[in-house]
């Protein structure tokens, strides 16, 4: 299997904090994961669980201050990105790692043409001249399904719809043939049909170009459709990690199971209202010394208050390679027990 080959990206023990007036916010706590060549890694978790902050930390995209890295390694092509200076990091961003953000309406610069914004990374990273960059830009726009591309180079973002702008964002992220594409909720701001189109586009591009993708979303339905493997995040840590089928078939963490119950069932009897998880994700003012989910967990016991669970293998394979979970329960409580109105 692909797991045997060296991963494109490997993150080990990443920690990121924010210095705020109220003290330090520990947003990323000891996050480790890897990304294999050509793989789509889905990242799920509620709002505030640290998905964006984790991914932005990888390539130094967080404003510092207030953000500050507190350790870990981010290995890409044999180099630790956390140790690179600004210049070297700039050569990685947009070239080796492409980023697509959530809101296509604000992510493009309103006063420059799409062509200009698309050609910028080409000229910087690939050293192309104007003509070469323009030709490549046309190619890219066609690749992401924008018709009449040559003429569109002169258009401004406001002349495009949200879906079209997101296509342009994807074209920008893919401009320099990156090894890794990080898509941070790229479809959340779009309506459902456009969402489906963008998903199709990315699936198609993935097969055409073969890059590895990190796809952040709230939507487990999207994960089921696109991801090979899933990372579930909570309180700035990875609470469960598994191949996508395994995760849906055999969720271990109470949080994952709660998330799965929030998906509306399309077939079968409706059990009344959609279930929501009660409470809010925590804002951690200190490194977690106990399980971050304990306040909302139906299976809380005294060990959860004393000790933050480490990730442990569920299926016998090493942590990160197969299915693993960060929960003190070794045998998950039967699902039936959890259902309550």
């Amino acid at each position: 299997m692909a797991e045997r080959a060296a991963p494109v990206l490997e993150v080990k023990g990443l920690r990121t904090i924010f210095r705020t007036r109220g003290g330090e916010v520990h947003a990323v706590n000891d996050v480790s994961f890897h990304l294999n060549r050509g793989e789509v890694l889905g990242v799920v978790g509620e709002s505030g669980s640290g998905k964006s902050v984790t991914m932005m930390s990888l390539i130094g995209l967080l404003p510092a201050p207030p953000a500050e890295n507190r350790g870990g390694e981010v290995l890409l092509g044999g180099r630790d990105l956390l140790k690179l200076d600004t210049r070297a990091l700039q050569e990685v961003r947009g070239a080796r790692v492409g980023f697509v953000f959530q809101d296509p309406m604000t992510s493009l610069n309103p006063v420059f043409t799409l062509g200009d914004q698309l050609m910028e990374p080409l000229r910087k990273h690939m050293g192309m001249d104007r003509t070469a960059a323009a030709n490549r830009a046309v190619e890219l726009l066609e690749l992401v399904g924008i018709p009449d591309a040559r003429r569109r180079l002169k258009a401004y973002p406001h002349q495009f719809s949200g879906g079209m702008r997101q296509r342009v964002m994807i074209a920008i992220a893919l401009a320099c043939d990156p090894d890794v594409l990080i898509a941070d909720e790229p479809t959340t701001a779009l309506d459902v049909t456009i969402q489906a189109q963008i998903l199709e586009l990315v699936k198609e591009l993935r097969h055409k170009l073969g890059m590895a993708i990190i796809w952040i979303t709230h939507d487990l339905g999207v994960i089921a459709g696109i991801a090979d493997r899933v990372l579930v995040m909570y309180g700035g840590q990875v609470v469960e990690q598994a191949p996508v089928r395994e995760l849906f078939a055999n969720p271990q963490h109470p949080y994952t199971r709660a998330l799965l119950r929030t998906i509306p069932a399309i077939s079968g009897p409706r059990e009344g209202r959609l279930k929501v998880i009660q409470g809010q994700p925590p804002i951690l003012m200190a490194p977690p010394a106990a399980c971050p989910f304990r306040a909302r967990c139906d299976y809380r016991h005294d060990r959860c208050d004393r000790e933050n669970p480490l990730r442990r293998a569920v299926d016998g394979r090493p942590v990160g390679q197969g299915h693993d979970v960060a929960c003190h329960w070794t045998a998950p409580a039967p699902v039936a027990e959890v259902i309550h109105a």
């Binding site: 390539i59 995209l61 700039q90 980023f99 953000f101 493009l108 610069n109 964002m169």
Partner: peptide, 29 residues
């Protein structure tokens, strides 16, 4: 603090380009 400034950084543009091209051009309006 606008998203497009973050996009420019994510594209690997230098701070100089981000601030004096992308951000300044909008701020000057």
């Amino acid at each position: 603090s606008q998203d497009y400034a973050r996009t420019a950084r994510a594209k690997g543009m230098s701070e100089r380009t981000v601030v004096l091209k992308h951000v300044l051009r909008n701020s000057l309006i």
